[in-house]
C-alpha cells in the first residue's frame, strides 16, 4: 500500500494537480466563510428579534424559533438534497456551488443564531436597564452596550462552529461541487491510489481547520469573562 503511494507521488504532485487541489481548498474555505458571515449576520438578526418583547413581533418570533429548531434538527445532507431540488426549478442556472452555499447559509444561520443568543443573554440585565434609563433606544443599547460586552462570549463558540463547518462542507461533494472532497474523488477516479488522493485531501482539511481551532481555544482562554484582565 505504501510502496504504491511512493511510486505514484511524482505523478500526483504535478504543478496542475497541486493548483487544482489548492483551488478546491479555496472553494471549501470560501463556502465556509460565506456561510459563517451570512449565518452570523442573519443569526444576529434572529437573536435580536427573539429578545424583543413587542407583541407586534410575536408572529415573527414564532417563525424564527421554528426556523432555528427545524434547521438544527435536520441532517445537513438532507438539507442539501431539499435545497438542490427546491432551487433548481426556481433558478434554472444556479450553479451547484451556489446551491451548496445556500444550504450552508440556511444551516449556519440556525446554529449561529443560538450562539449569538447565548452571548446576548450573558450581558447582565442591569446593563440594559442602565441604558434604558439614559433614554437609549433598542438599537443604541444593542450597539453601544450589549454587543461590545457579548462578543467575547460569542466569538469562541462561533469559531468552534466554523471549524465544524469546514468539515461539514465536504458533504457538498455529493451533489458535485468541486471542493476538497470532490477533488479527492476525482484523483481516485483517475487511477491514483485512494490513500494518496484522500490522504492529500485529509491533510489539506487539517491545514484549514487546525489553525482555526487553535485560535478558538486560545480566544476561549483569553476572553473568558471570569478572568478578564
Amino acid at each position: 500500500m505504501f510502496e504504491r503511494l511512493l511510486f505514484e507521488a511524482p505523478d500526483f504532485f504535478t504543478y496542475y494537480n497541486v493548483i487544482f487541489l489548492l483551488e478546491a481548498a479555496a472553494r471549501t474555505l470560501g463556502m465556509t466563510l460565506i456561510g459563517c458571515t451570512v449565518g452570523f449576520i442573519a443569526g444576529l438578526l434572529i437573536a435580536v428579534l427573539r429578545q424583543s418583547v413587542n407583541p407586534w413581533t410575536l408572529p415573527l418570533r414564532v417563525i424564527a424559533i421554528a426556523y432555528v429548531e427545524t434547521f438544527r434538527r435536520i441532517p445537513f445532507l438532507v438539507i442539501i438534497f431539499i435545497v438542490l431540488y427546491a432551487i433548481q426549478p426556481l433558478m434554472e442556472n444556479a450553479s451547484l456551488l451556489t446551491i451548496a452555499t445556500i444550504a450552508i447559509c440556511l444551516v449556519s444561520t440556525a446554529f449561529l443564531s443560538e450562539i449569538v443568543r447565548a452571548g446576548l443573554e450573558s450581558v447582565p440585565k442591569q446593563q440594559i436597564e442602565g441604558a434604558r434609563t439614559l433614554n437609549f433606544g433598542a438599537a443604541r443599547t444593542l450597539w453601544y452596550v450589549v454587543l461590545p460586552q457579548a462578543w467575547r462570549v460569542i466569538l469562541p463558540p462561533a469559531i468552534a462552529f466554523a471549524v465544524m463547518f469546514i468539515k461539514d462542507t465536504s458533504l457538498a461533494s455529493h451533489i458535485g461541487v468541486v471542493e476538497l472532497t470532490f477533488s479527492g474523488k476525482m484523483f481516485v477516479n483517475r487511477g491514483f491510489s485512494p490513500l494518496l488522493g484522500f490522504g492529500a485531501v485529509l491533510v489539506l482539511y487539517f491545514l484549514l481547520s487546525y489553525p482555526l481551532s487553535r485560535l478558538g481555544t486560545y480566544l476561549e482562554k483569553r476572553l473568558d469573562p471570569s478572568r478578564r484582565s
Binding site: K167, D168, S193, P194, F198, S213
Partner: peptide
C-alpha cells in the same frame, strides 16, 4: 487529527484505501 478532518473523507479512506 480526527476532530480537524471530515468524517466523510476518513470513511472514504477506510472504505476505499484499506482494500489496498
Amino acid at each position: 487529527f480526527i476532530t480537524n478532518t471530515p468524517a466523510l473523507v476518513q470513511i472514504f479512506v477506510l472504505y476505499y484505501a484499506l482494500p489496498d
